[in-house]
Simulated scan of single mutants.
Amino acid sequence: MPAAARVDPKAYFSPPEWAALARRSRWKGLALMAHAWGVIFAAAAMAVIWPLTLPLAVMTIGGRQLGLSILMHDAAHGALHPDPKVNDLAGEWLTGGGLVRYRTYHLGHHKYAQQDEDPDIGLSAPFP
């Protein structure tokens, strides 16, 4: 089956609007990673110092792991950092690993969204 028709977002946004949406920050993605890892280490230290806080630490760490997965999604799209080498290095080593494998899988999802070839069709098919 052919790939889904591509839509040019610039048909819906003015050039200044699109420029603001497409701008990539050199520091925001890396700062978000530093924050996530800082919270993970702080939550782990809290659980070691005060063992009764272990359930809270587990929930907090799980939330930040989800945040790191979202940042890997951004890295897969090349949106984490404007320098592709920094983007890929941070996406691979600071988000949990597997960026290249995930990028291949995820961009396949975008190419074949809601078609038989979509690798996520099993996740989305049951929903309207």
Rank of each mutant, 00 (worst) to 15 (best):
A76S: 10
A75H: 03
G78L: 02
H77I: 03
M72F: 00
L66F: 14
G67C: 15
H73M: 10
P55D: 04
A57G: 11
M72L: 07
A76R: 02
G67P: 00
R64D: 09
M59S: 10
P55L: 06
T53F: 13
A76V: 06
A75Q: 08
A79W: 05
G67I: 05
T53L: 14
D83H: 08
I61P: 02
P84D: 06
G62L: 08
M59N: 01
P55M: 09
I70D: 04
T60R: 02
I61C: 07
I61V: 10
M59K: 07
L66I: 13
M59W: 09
M59C: 12
L54N: 10
H81Y: 12
H73S: 11
A76W: 07
T60H: 00
G78P: 02
M59P: 04
M72S: 02
V58I: 15
I70L: 15
L54R: 12
I70H: 14
Q65C: 15
I70S: 14
I70V: 14
R64S: 01
L68F: 14
D83R: 07
S69W: 13
G78D: 08
Q65F: 11
S69N: 13
P55G: 04
I61D: 03
G67Y: 05
L54D: 00
G62D: 10
D74E: 15
M72T: 03
